[in-house]
Design a protein around this nucleic acid. Structure first.
Lengths: 202, 202
DNA sequence: CTACTATGTCATCAACTGATGACTTACGAC
DNA sequence: GTCGTAAGTCATCAGTTGATGACATAGTAG
């Protein structure tokens, strides 16, 4: 257990076998996984795979899974980085068709993004949910309502809200794999279908 | 599987061996334990012991641990509602109109129930999400698809899936207060609106 | 080079999980 | 009483979990 070369932690840990980098990789993976799935649902094997490291090293460097969790929580304060947002949601939309296509295409990838999840979870931090909600209204609901109004449709705001909520439901169900066909259908094809229903309210 | 004595469920289930009492004991124990310790940390053996019943009976009466969880959650919900019909979500639906009305009415009061949340959150335990999903498909999507098919509508299954997902989106947005008008509008009035869009696909 | 050790790999463990199906028992009709 | 069946019991399964220690290898000092 004696360190032959008590290397200063800051200087030159450049090696392919690097205990420091390994520890940090484990810590980062643990933070991500524990944060996303919770403690119980995260396995040491997952953490190891995510970190590109053998799970046995968790025991070596942290003692146990529980100890790794404590270490991850303790280090949590440092990782308060900025969050990415889909570029698509930031652009103004011309009409409902744009909206439908973009939303369906966004949810075509895997899982709903952090924004949609914030919108949907009842335990999300209120200020985050409110921010997501406000953006949704401004970028999507209002343009659609304006279009409905211009088209002389009755109760344009309410109908726009219904349409957007419905669309989010479809996107959510699609990205979470609720239904087989819904999941498998091509985004563009689906857009046509959804537009048929939402596009001509009243 | 023929019942020799089709005893009316309401009358005289006074026996030492009583399926009804056993189910209720399991349900009560499940509510208590799931509520206190969460799903993952609660084992079927614990539930059985707390209920004074063999854990194998969970499988017999509820199907699985995940199904028991859903049943416990549903039962809790019904207990809150004073006079809600005991059938609730457990009965098959006649047509899309039924579905729309029930869903909108259910999401009218409080936030989305645990079941809807389980369906919607990407960090929910997979078994529970799958159980909720399976129930949704069987009780709602399939009947609606059958109706669409009977009406000679093209691609009935896909359209039913889209319709149900959209409907859930509306219910979700409504119960979470996404949009003001959507939140304020009377359920029945809203039902008419949604049906206009979903009810006549193609 | 040789040797030493920090680092990483691997096979495997014991414990626990939910689930299953064959078996036993008690109920209640007759 | 008998007897069929619902209700309950039990042993055991297959899978997963976190953990462990023997082993292999890379990096470095001398």
């Amino acid at each position: 257990m004696t360190t032959p070369t008590p290397v200063d932690a800051a200087t030159a840990p450049r090696r392919t076998r690097n205990a420091l980098m390994t520890k940090e990789a484990l810590l980062a993976a643990a933070q991500e996984l524990f944060g996303r799935k919770g403690y119980e649902r995260t396995t040491t094997r997952e953490i190891g795979e995510a970190a590109g490291v053998d799970p046995a090293l968790i025991a070596r460097y942290f003692g146990s899974k529980a100890d790794l969790y404590l270490a991850a929580v303790a280090a949590e304060r440092l990782a308060d980085d900025e969050r990415d947002e889909p570029a698509g949601v930031d652009q103004p939309f011309a009409d409902l068709q744009d909206v439908v296509e973009v939303v369906l295409r966004l949810t075509a990838r895997q899982g709903p993004g952090p924004i949609l999840q914030a919108l949907v979870r009842d335990d999300a931090p209120p200020e985050i949910r409110e921010a997501a909600r406000a953006r949704l209204v401004r970028r999507i609901v209002q343009p659609v309502a304006a279009q409905f109004d211009a088209d002389g449709i009755d109760r344009p705001t309410l109908r726009a809200q219904v349409a957007v909520a419905a669309l989010l439901g479809v996107g959510l169900g699609r990205s979470l794999g609720w239904f087989d066909e819904l999941h498998a259908t091509d985004p563009d094809e689906l857009a046509v279908l959804v537009l048929e229903a939402l596009g001509r309210p009243g």
